[in-house]
Design a binder for these strands. Structure first.
Lengths: 196, 196
DNA sequence: TGGCCTATCTATCGTTCGTTAGATTTATTT
DNA sequence: AAATAAATCTAACGAACGATAGATAGGCCA
């Protein structure tokens, strides 16, 4: 029976509203009303509006991602790991999805949050680079494989964007099929470039 | 010597600011100052702030897309047409890119612009469906081809998102290579599913 | 020249914004 | 029970917001 503190309530509602109507589109009064507390309480728990925004758009986003990564299967085939990676994002809770949406929007420079955007950009880039290396190791380093990796990452990003940002549903079977197909193709390409 | 009217100046600056700082993050005073005209002039040419926003985020976006589509090569191979499609977006002017960005953001529900978002969504869906059919005709209708089409469209969307939304550069050679590779793969898949 | 649009302005309205000061209640410690 | 600390409140600040009223300037037709 973990009881929920006022601070947590504020964060949850803030995430929901920021994610839905943006930073400037959401007033702290609106958040306070939604939480049913007085306005200055937000200043009791957070330095100011921007502080509140950063705490959820960055800190929570990183927390969620760390949790997801730790839950990813380790010993399975890469194609199944990536399938699970996408499925994790598909099956996020509403709160987590909003946090994720917030971070993606900040990353896409939806508004003027230069500081957190820069942090997120760097964070995202190291993750992408990690994946890129993983896939290189799996498929090879030829020019064709390099292209394949790019295409594959584009596909993954687009899936996550659709699932989280636009809240468009993609069936699990569809996700798995597309990813598996890329690995099927990858095998052909890898073989071809080995021969040459 | 086509001279630029005040209305056009307002639209250009509004696009720039809305695209950069969002709807709520941009005040009409800010636009007026940037244009170096008085505030009520915005109300002389546009009904209100929202009207101004819609006029650029939707009307201009559709106009730009119509122009791009009419300039697309007709008789070339599909893979080259799609390459040109992406290159068109890569080579948009700053103004057009901002308009495009605005529309994509509205589509991604960055803020509370339900009306224009719905219009854009429908517009986008018909375009995607058109492409999907074109590719089906080219690759075939097997299940494998269907997957390929999905992946291909994801790749295209991701490229455009990167080029326009995040302003990340992708070299022309890279764009062409990735698209051509998908068509190479498509030929293999199509052949395979013909045999079975 | 006088009247009439179109284009532009200054000044101001009422509202909402983010933020803070300072009082008050509730919980904890002595 | 008294004293202290933590949590919450009411009330208000100045600034910025979207919007409008009403005046003024310049060009065009009579």
């Amino acid at each position: 029976m973990k009881e929920i503190t006022l601070k947590e309530k504020i964060m949850i509602k803030a995430v929901e509203l920021f994610s839905e109507k943006g930073y400037y589109g959401t007033s702290i009064r609106e958040i306070a009303n939604a939480v049913e507390c007085s306005l200055p309480m937000l200043y009791y728990y957070f330095k100011n509006k921007n502080d509140l925004y950063e705490e959820i758009a960055y800190a929570e986003f990183v927390k969620i991602n760390d949790r997801l990564r730790s839950k990813l299967p380790k010993q399975k085939h890469l194609k199944e790991i990536y399938t699970q990676y996408v499925l994790q994002r598909k099956n996020l809770s509403e709160y987590e999805k909003s946090v994720y949406r917030l971070a993606l929007k900040a990353w896409m420079r939806t508004e003027r949050n230069i500081d957190i955007q820069a942090k997120l950009k760097q964070w995202e880039e190291t993750r992408i680079e990690y994946s890129r290396n993983l896939l290189r190791k799996h498929w090879g380093q030829s020019q064709a494989c390099e292209l394949l990796v790019s295409i594959f990452i584009r596909m993954l990003e687009n899936m996550v964007d659709k699932l989280v940002l636009i809240n468009e549903d993609i069936l699990e079977e569809q996700i798995r099929s597309e990813i598996y197909m890329m690995f099927e193709y990858g095998a052909i390409i890898a073989e071809k470039s080995m021969v040459q």
